[in-house]
Design a protein around this nucleic acid. Sequence first.
DNA 1: GGATCAGCGA
DNA 2: ACGTCGCTGATCCC
Length: 889
Amino acid sequence: MEHLTLVDGNSVMFRAYYATAYPGAVLMQTSQGVYTNAVFAFVNMMDKILEQTNGHILVAFDTAHPTKRHEKYQEYKAGRAAMPEELAQQIPLVKKYLDKAGIKQHEQIGYEADDIIGTLAKEASQNNIKVDVYSSDRDLLQLVDQNITVHLLKKGMKELDHYTPESLYEKYELTHHQMIDLKALMGDPSDNIPGIPGVGEKTAIKLLKEYETIENLYVHQDEIKGKMGEKIRENKELAYLSKDLVTINVESPLPFSYLETEKIKIETSDLIDFFKELELKQLVVRMANQNQNTLFKDEEKSDKKTDKSFSYDLILNDEKLNDIIFNHQEPMSIHFEFSEPNYHKAELWGIGLSNGENTYFIDPSIALNNQTFLNYLKNKEIEKYTFDYKAIKVFLMWHKKAIHTISFDMLLAAYLIKSSIGKEDFTTITSLFSSIDISYEEQIYGKGAKKGLPENKELYYEHIAKKASVIYKLKDDLLETLKDQNQLELLQKVEIPLSEVLASMEFSGLLVDNKELLNQKEVLEKRINVLEESIYKEAGETFNISSPKQLGDILFEKLNLSQGKKTKTGYSTNVEVLEKLKDEHPIIPYIMEYRQLAKLYSTYIIGISQSIFSDNKVHTIFNQALTTTGRLSSIEPNLQNIPIRTEEGRKIRKIFVAEKNHYLLGADYSQIELRVLADIANVKHLKESFLNNEDIHKSTAQKVFHVTDVTSEQRRQAKAVNFGIIYGIGAWSLAEDIHVSPKEAQMFIDRYLEIYPEIKQYMQDTVEFATENGYVKTLMNRRRYIPEINSKVFMQKEFGKRNAMNAPIQGSAADIIKVAMVDLFKYLEENDKKSKIILQVHDELILEVPEEELEEMKELVPAIMKKAVKLTVSLETSCDVGKNWYELK
DNA sequence: GGATCAGCGA
DNA sequence: ACGTCGCTGATCCC
């Protein structure tokens, strides 16, 4: 043995927890609500530490029992805030991890972790063994000697400070022997160690440089003049008591010696299972990779990586495929494995097929050219089960193939059962509903730039086949759960049919006018260049305007403008701050305009250019299983955030055009969220206003301000309150928004809730429902779980309440437009219309309509949207047509 | 590659 | 600390 590592378990765990538990943070949790942030960070730290060890390691913990220090000084560690529950829960998990990792741990009644570490460290050091101590507690610096190095964790846990006798001297100009006296003189508020009142670090160092020790200081106590001398003389007892308290017991009676700290060889799979249980995916993958690297060294062992309990057949030729399909004219699960998430341009890596009993991997190039298989896919009589039906559908559309009659989709089912898991991958979703063991994607394919098919083909053959078998196996359970939750209709009548609508929309795409795009690009480039010059001139130097850091330096240090808000890392330079500085310096308006144009240029002109396919269209992907509320999202490109609010930005819409002889038709719901609120909360006056077709913000203003003639400012404020209410607004932010004092804002809110008392009631009821059930639901029984609502952390609880109030409104509106889309699509299909739905932007639909269907669609689309769902208020829609998106006002 | 800031939409 | 849900780009640091 040549080296020993000692870790202060409590202190590292505290750091691990607080590294991510800043106020307002959402802590890492498993899907079952078990907190894991501290475990995760602790393991990461241990991994770092383990890289530096040669196998001898021990983690020491404090116990909850009083120690000798408490006997000597009752106030020891008094006044310390109680450990947060979220951290306390994780202590057993951290200890369990150490056990699984084969790392020795020790705690001992009557002693602190410090004492255990001190005793072992000194014992080893005396035998000339090198020791590394890890902690965040500066007290341990007293252990430093020629053999012992102390590593202190810094705040973010990313860096360590290393202390040797030399570096200690450099920093404090004291020897390591004096560290105890230093702490004793200074005291330590966190442990409630008194020290000498009025003596801080600076004075203590000064005194020790002169007198070396506390003992010698008191030999010369009369030489010290002034107030300081008085204090020192008066507090002699405190000083000695403090010294006693801070002195680590390096002769604790431990039941083992430093020699018995060797790391035990472990089964990696145990540790992987433990991480899987805690859903710590990163750690699972890391461990698995480490494991694989060791396995690869031994050719014999490499087949251990495949699962012996799972069997499947390989289908690599037409004969076998014909045979299999011929024998399985029955419902099966089908999985298509793609090379990348964007299935429009992805390669097909493999196909899995399973009927529960038999499972197959099919070579994709065989399958896509095999008529028997293709006939099976498009056979409307045979049900199929999938994971992400839309991806398969769109991929097949690109290849001019069809697939029909999907009666179960695992991704959508899981998403409906719990909307927050739609973000997860296949493996995580599987583990949430079963104990089936299936590798993470990264384990099979690697990640980032290195992603690709593994050398060992069996590895991915099995993985893909297994996915198909999982889909089949989980189907009945998931359907059962959906049935229990009254969500079968939502899956089968809304989400699965919607998949087909979305597939068609994505495949249709949206045509781009290249000339218009290039034209706008050039215009913007020129304007941006001119603005850059003006900004550099005003600043007196060139710098990167797009860097908030550099811009902040220019504005607030060089030009000395009055700074507003700060961000975590420096000055805020956002538009609100700039707005306030507008008249302070001529550079500001230039910067604001630069920001606006640079945004349009990079995100929209350049960004969208990069997403154009060879058919001159953009083919977005609507994520159907992502948002927690039930809305869709759109990526590559995001077509749900094309500018509209400023004229400048709105022009971007000119680049999106209808195909030849076609028009774009846009139809949007008017005030759908407020109507939903009026309906579900049964808000009498709101309903009346909608019934009378009033301008809703105007009528709110009339009531809130008690006026008949509403000024535009009053309407604007009422509008802000109407929106704010939907989001569960607070007075402070409403005040910011409508430029009044928080007090006035609170008056508005109070007044608003007087006018619409049912809204107040609804909010109370919803919060109560969420508190009791842990979730809220929409018109169509879509659920959103809100674990935060029972949090003891004020901020998180408030966040939970806002979500509880907002999710049913936003989610019901999402339900409604989804139903409308399914209805509309069905009508168009059944009546052989050429019009196509191509976009959805939360409350509006955009269609591409051939000229001859234009008049019909102008009537039909709004009509279908209106009657999608029957509410106690009517759903109103407006409708516009144009040759490009810009013309849809 | 990930965190941070910024800014676009409903 | 400060209104919901999203996506993308630029910079900066690891």
